[in-house]
């Protein structure tokens, strides 16, 4: 198992009332597995997260990218800058 922390921001953090979520993922862990685990643990995010992407170490990552415990993960959805 890989323990990962996913950072949340903006409305995603507000709805979960947390700025980070800890998850345990079976190895080899991919971004898609992280997203699946995140939405399973917090289904209230699903509706808001249409088109959501995972950033790994501050860069957008494809869903098949493998992740490691030392990676910094962030859920990027509903951005609203400008």
């Amino acid at each position: 198992m890989v323990k990962v922390k996913v950072l949340l921001f903006g409305p995603m953090a507000q709805v979960v009332q947390a700025s980070e979520i800890m998850l345990q993922i079976d190895e080899p862990a991919t971004c898609q597995q992280v997203l699946d685990a995140l939405f399973s643990k917090h289904p209230e995010l699903i509706e808001m997260a249409t088109g959501a992407r995972l950033a790994v170490n501050s860069s957008f990552a494809a869903t098949d990218v493998c992740i490691h415990e030392s990676d910094e993960l962030a859920l990027i959805a509903m951005v609203s800058g400008g």
């Binding site: 921001f9 962030a74 951005v79 800058g81």
Partner: peptide, 14 residues
């Protein structure tokens, strides 16, 4: 640029 900003730049406003 502004269209892309609203899709890709991780900044949120409340």
């Amino acid at each position: 640029f502004i269209d892309a900003l609203k899709c890709d730049v991780p900044i949120w406003k409340t």
